[in-house]
């Protein structure tokens, strides 16, 4: 077995020092070591977006990032968006607009949408659809998800 590497990363604001084998992905470490299971495992080829998290300000498919690559970095997962038990306006908009059916893709969708709004506070429908195309929803809530992003953007603008 290959030796492990000591890494430090800040996850949802909390500093974590862990020993990881180099071949383990950020998704593995989040789910198995840190037990943050909001990032989901599905396709493992960067197609579905269920494992989306934010690394140093940008969304990534955490199934395609080795944990060692993130040493010294900052990670935000779906669990890290709400503060003190209060949903973000975006999360609330997901519920109000009916963007959640089975919910399995939703942590990834919320993270992607959160990053999209951070980058572009007033996106057009087209920009939302392009920006979230890397997050598959088989329940087909795409319209409701874009409605939620638009509602959250409006809410922010107010």
């Amino acid at each position: 077995m290959t030796a492990t590497v000591a890494i430090t990363l800040r996850v949802n604001g909390r500093l974590r020092s862990i020993e990881v084998a180099p071949h383990r992905t950020l998704l593995d470490v989040l789910r198995d070591d840190i037990r943050l299971t909001g990032a989901k495992e599905c396709c493992l080829v960067g197609e579905c977006g269920a494992c989306t998290v934010i690394v140093d300000g940008r969304t990534v498919d955490s199934c395609l990032v080795l944990a060692v690559e993130v040493d010294g970095g900052e990670v935000t997962t779906a669990e890290g968006l709400a503060r003190d038990g209060t949903l973000t306006p975006l999360q609330q908009a997901f519920l109000d607009e009916g963007a959640v059916q089975c919910g399995f893709c939703i942590p990834g969708q919320v993270v992607s949408a959160h990053a999209l709004l951070a980058e572009n506070p007033d996106p057009t429908l087209e920009e939302i659809q392009e920006g979230l195309a890397g997050n598959l929803c088989r329940c087909g809530c795409y319209w409701q998800i874009s409605d939620a992003v638009i509602a959250a953007a409006r809410n922010d603008a107010r």
Binding site: T37, G38, L87, D96, V100, G103, P107
Partner: peptide
């Protein structure tokens, strides 16, 4: 009416436990 989905909060915060969790 269309009240907020039961179990919705857990789903938008990543807390919902699915089988693999």
């Amino acid at each position: 009416g269309s009240p907020q989905r039961v179990g919705g909060i857990a789903r938008v915060t990543g807390q919902q436990e699915y089988l693999a969790d």
